[in-house]
């Protein structure tokens, strides 16, 4: 049946509403980026103007790169996020495989136990986590953050990957068994490659909260050597709060990696959400 064609007026109104909201969503980011390239007086004189040759200035970036240890902060963030995602994916996929492939006593219970963490935030255990990290001598180490983020990411990873692994054909795995593959090879060589799309979705979902987290870096690893870029920019901006050039430049520097990653992964991310990966 042919759809009744919508009137041009209605389509126009729909676009108008969407464009207005898109502007609301993008404007603050746009404003920050353009002003970070202007000199101080034109930031205040003409906040909405694009940088022109006469107002262009990199003074903010010079301050940021001269004062803050941003290279180190970026490095810390990359290590923490990367290693955590690696463990979340590996451990999560292994547990998901066990839950979806084998029938054993307590299977359902185990699934529920691991799913608890989807709804209950790990933050509520901070008091005892800090106590434990002090006892283990892990305060102000990246290891502490990696452990916490791995635990934080696992529940959702196990949940999504279990659903996905149930769709992998039994025939394939049984064929592997007949060919004499061990259960480990079946997992690593047959199943893992097949669930790669789901792993990518999990990786994106896991990455965002870890990269953006302020709470655990603030409490577990606030030392200069272990600051993540989120905490680093928070502290930097707090100190330079009256130096608008520096603040805007620091914000822009913090936005750029997120923006680049988002442009690369946005299709994956949006497809992940809309295909019902999180339900």
């Amino acid at each position: 049946m042919a759809k009744p064609t919508a009137s041009p007026v209605r389509t126009g109104l729909v676009h108008l509403a969407l464009i207005i909201y898109t502007l609301i969503a993008l404007f603050p980011v746009f404003l920050t980026v353009i002003n970070s390239f202007k000199d101080r007086s034109s930031i205040f004189r003409d906040p909405l103007g694009l940088p022109t040759p006469s107002t262009f200035s990199l003074i903010g970036y010079q301050t940021v790169l001269g004062q803050g240890d941003f290279v180190l902060y970026f490095q810390n963030s990359f290590i923490v996020t990367g290693v955590s995602i690696f463990f979340v994916l590996l451990f999560g996929a292994m547990a998901a495989f066990a839950l979806s492939e084998y029938r054993f006593r307590g299977n359902t219970l185990m699934g529920l136990y691991l799913a608890l963490g989807i709804m209950i935030p790990i933050r509520l255990g901070t008091v005892a986590i800090l106590q434990g990290m002090v006892a283990a001598g892990l305060v102000n180490t990246l290891t502490a953050l990696i452990l916490v983020y791995t635990a934080q990411g696992l529940p959702l990873a196990v949940f999504i990957l279990t659903e996905f692994m149930q769709t992998v054909s039994d025939d394939l795995k049984n064929a592997g068994r007949i060919d004499g593959l061990s259960e480990y090879s079946i997992f690593f060589r047959l199943v893992l490659p097949l669930v790669r799309p789901a792993m990518a979705t999990v990786a994106v979902f896991t990455m965002i909260p870890i990269w953006n987290d302020l709470w655990f870096p603030l409490i577990l690893a606030p030392s200069d050597a272990t600051k993540t870029v989120t905490l680093g920019s928070q502290v930097f901006i707090g100190q330079f709060v009256t130096n608008w050039n520096a603040v805007l430049a620091a914000l822009t520097l913090a936005i750029v990696p997120v923006l680049v990653l988002y442009l690369i992964f946005s299709r994956q991310l949006i497809r992940g959400i809309t295909s019902g990966a999180v339900k």
């Binding site: 963490g117 209950i120 255990g125 901070t126 008091v127 005892a128 986590i129 434990g132 791995t150 934080q152």
Partner: peptide
Amino acid sequence: VMILPLIET
């Protein structure tokens, strides 16, 4: 890292 600290808290 998650359940025991939660209980301990």
